[in-house]
Computed example of a mutant assay.
Amino acid sequence: MPYRQSLHIEAPVEKVFDAFRDPRTWRDVAASGVSFGDTHCTPEGLGTHYTWIANLAGIRLHGFNVYTEFVPNRRITDRSSLSLEGTWTYEFEPEGSGTRLTMENRSGGLWRLWPLELLLARATAASHGPVFEKVKAKLESGQ
């Protein structure tokens, strides 16, 4: 059971997509204990990559993520070097005067065992839900 969240953002698809195309956007809204390091954005989006560090229950995690799929104004797939973090897929669809943003996270390795995956999905919802609400508020305020 992967983590999946969908929300409406009252902003055009292009604006929402642009916020996700550049991983540096996350620095302003990241959860406490998460920091971002080197970031390289490619002009075509595919191959954009970045490093991050997170403290999870006293354990320091280091990750490297890369955009493995990039369809302008439609979809970004962001794959992590860490099986716990897995693969994030972001989908952008016009909805009324705004955008329907759907995010899905699929972990890798042993985390794919359903009891662990369920536990991880709940933890992801608790940690990432507030981050996505911050992204929503930032985009809707025009920042």
Rank of each mutant, 00 (worst) to 15 (best):
Arg106Gln: 10
Glu133Trp: 00
Ala123Pro: 01
Ala125Cys: 13
Ala123Arg: 05
Lys136Asp: 02
Leu110Ile: 15
Ser141Gly: 04
Lys134Val: 14
Ser127Tyr: 06
Leu120Tyr: 05
Trp111Pro: 05
Arg112Met: 14
Trp114Val: 11
Lys138Ser: 02
Glu104Asp: 07
Leu116Glu: 05
Leu118Ala: 14
Ala126Gly: 04
Asn105Glu: 10
Ala121Met: 03
Pro130Glu: 03
Val131Leu: 03
Met103Leu: 10
Pro130Asn: 01
Arg112His: 13
Ala125Ser: 14
Arg106Asn: 13
Met103Phe: 00
Ser141Asp: 04
Ser141Thr: 09
Trp111Ala: 04
Ala137Thr: 06
Lys136Cys: 04
Pro115Gln: 10
Arg122Pro: 08
Leu139Trp: 06
Pro115Arg: 10
His128Leu: 15
Leu113Phe: 09
Leu120Gln: 15
Ser127Phe: 07
His128Cys: 09
Ala123Met: 08
Ala121His: 01
Ala126Met: 11
Leu120His: 11
Leu119Met: 07
Val135Met: 11
Ser107Ile: 08
Leu116Gln: 03
Ser127Ile: 08
Glu117Cys: 15
Arg106Met: 15
Leu139Ser: 07
Glu117Thr: 12
Ser107Arg: 13
His128Lys: 12
Leu118Ser: 13
Val131Arg: 01
Gly129Val: 01
Lys136Ala: 07
Gly108Glu: 15
Glu140Cys: 10
Ala123Glu: 06
Lys138Thr: 03
Lys134His: 08
Phe132Gly: 03
Lys134Glu: 13
Trp114Thr: 13
Gly109Phe: 11
Val131Glu: 09
Lys138Leu: 00
Lys136Val: 01
Leu118Arg: 15
Gly129Pro: 04
Pro130Tyr: 02
Arg122Asp: 09
Pro115Trp: 10
Thr124Lys: 00
Ala126Val: 09
Ala123Gly: 07
Leu119Asn: 06
His128Asp: 12
Trp111Tyr: 11
Ser141Leu: 04
Ser107Met: 13
Glu104Pro: 04
Val135Gly: 09
Ala126Arg: 09
Pro130His: 01
Pro130Ser: 01
Ser107Ala: 15
Ser141Lys: 06
Met103Lys: 05
Pro115Lys: 13
Val131Trp: 00
Lys134Pro: 07
Ser107Gly: 11
Trp111Gln: 05
Gly129Ile: 00
Arg112Tyr: 12
Val135Cys: 12
Glu133Asn: 00
His128Tyr: 15
Phe132Pro: 01
Lys134Gln: 12
Leu119Thr: 05
Ser127Lys: 05
Gly109Lys: 13
Trp111Asp: 10
Trp114Leu: 12
Lys134Ile: 14
Leu119Gln: 04
Ala137Ile: 04
Arg122Leu: 14
Pro130Met: 03
Leu113His: 05
Asn105His: 04
Glu140Ser: 12
